[in-house]
């Protein structure tokens, strides 16, 4: 990565940077904290960074909402919310420097996705600048809102390609009274069905780790039901992550085991975290795609495309061309 657009602190500056890029026909990489981007293949492009747009704009504890600028670190946000006994269960996914905007833009599953739901479900309002240079807002600060098209969902997981997210309003919930990791061995993939809505169930070669949140007495009873013992949280492999229909996760895990990869599978979610060399990951990607899934490589040193082959999505293309007519917002995102 080469020159950057300098420290941007306002949506208007983001707009100017985008208009400059359109004029010069110079596509840009869109960056926030870099926790994911720095693990993708590097290109030689100018960088538009929102890392300078930080800070909590408004924490309405009594409304269970928080409005925060895109470059704010997740750690800082969690601290502010925890002081009020609240949280937004959007979590870092490995890599340092996770920001709110980055996590919304990439929308990768965190460890607690099983219980907390998807990243996209926590976004109430988004402010962004489109690739055409329009400063726009979608959604609102109320927890229910069907006013206009749901562009909050559209922006979540758009990886910077449709617009640059500058500010978001998130839904909050009370912090659980009790929160602890447990484990059981041998591993079993059925704990999500046996227990009542556990927060996480992550299976590795040796054991299954379970996160229970809620009332401590319920946790004791749930743990007894599945013969769980208190344990440390699992350590997740970081080189790659495969995603398949959760119904096909066990099949994928077996393939990865055969290939000699280190793995940790998020049961009921369908994400499998992997460590291995390039050839092993190529084979794992084939195994995931054969099951209708995909694999994301998060180690540029392996010299593999981050995203695998994707089918053709004509509607995706039309929307991208509309919101980013000059293809200045990381148009290469899903092809490298």
């Amino acid at each position: 990565m080469t020159a950057t657009t300098g420290e941007l602190t306002t949506a208007e500056q983001v707009r100017e940077a985008i208009m400059d890029a359109r004029r010069d026909v110079t596509p840009m990489e869109i960056r926030s904290g870099g926790s994911v981007l720095d693990r993708l293949p590097a290109g030689d492009h100018p960088v538009l960074s929102v890392a300078g747009m930080t800070g909590v704009v408004a924490h309405a504890a009594e409304d269970l909402t928080v409005t925060v600028r895109a470059g704010t670190s997740l750690t800082e946000l969690s601290q502010v919310l925890a002081d009020a006994g609240q949280e937004c269960p959007i979590e870092p996914t490995g890599g340092a420097g996770s920001t709110v905007g980055g996590r919304i833009a990439t929308a990768l599953a965190g460890p607690r996705q099983l219980g907390a739901g998807r990243v996209r479900d926590w976004l109430l309002r988004v402010r962004f600048v489109t690739g055409a240079g329009q400063i726009a807002t979608a959604g609102g600060v109320t927890v229910k809102d069907v006013t206009g098209y749901d562009l909050c969902r559209l922006m979540t997981g758009s990886w910077g390609t449709l617009g640059v997210i500058t500010e978001v309003t998130l839904k909050l919930r009370p912090l659980a009274r009790h929160r602890a990791w447990y484990a059981t061995d041998p591993p079993r993939h059925d704990l999500d069905a046996l227990l009542y809505r556990p927060s996480a169930s992550i299976t590795t070669r040796d054991r299954t780790h379970v996160l229970l949140e809620g009332h401590p007495d319920d946790a004791v009873e749930q743990a007894a039901l599945a013969e769980l013992v208190p344990a440390d949280p699992p350590t997740l492999p970081v080189t790659a992550r495969a995603s398949v229909d959760p119904a096909r996760l066990v099949g994928l895990v077996e393939a990865c085991e055969t290939l000699g990869l280190a793995w940790a599978a998020q049961d009921g979610v369908g994400v499998c975290h992997l460590d291995g060399d390039g050839d092993q990951l190529d084979a794992a990607r084939t195994a995931a795609e054969k099951r209708g899934g995909s694999l994301l490589v998060l180690d540029p040193d392996l010299r593999r495309p981050a995203f695998g082959s994707r089918g053709s999505f004509p509607l995706d293309e039309r929307v991208r061309r509309t919101l980013d007519p000059d293809a200045v917002l990381a148009p290469w995102r899903w092809t490298r």
Partner: peptide, 8 residues
């Protein structure tokens, strides 16, 4: 599948 890539 949870992380198919592409826009929502």
């Amino acid at each position: 599948a949870p992380e198919l890539g592409g826009i929502d």
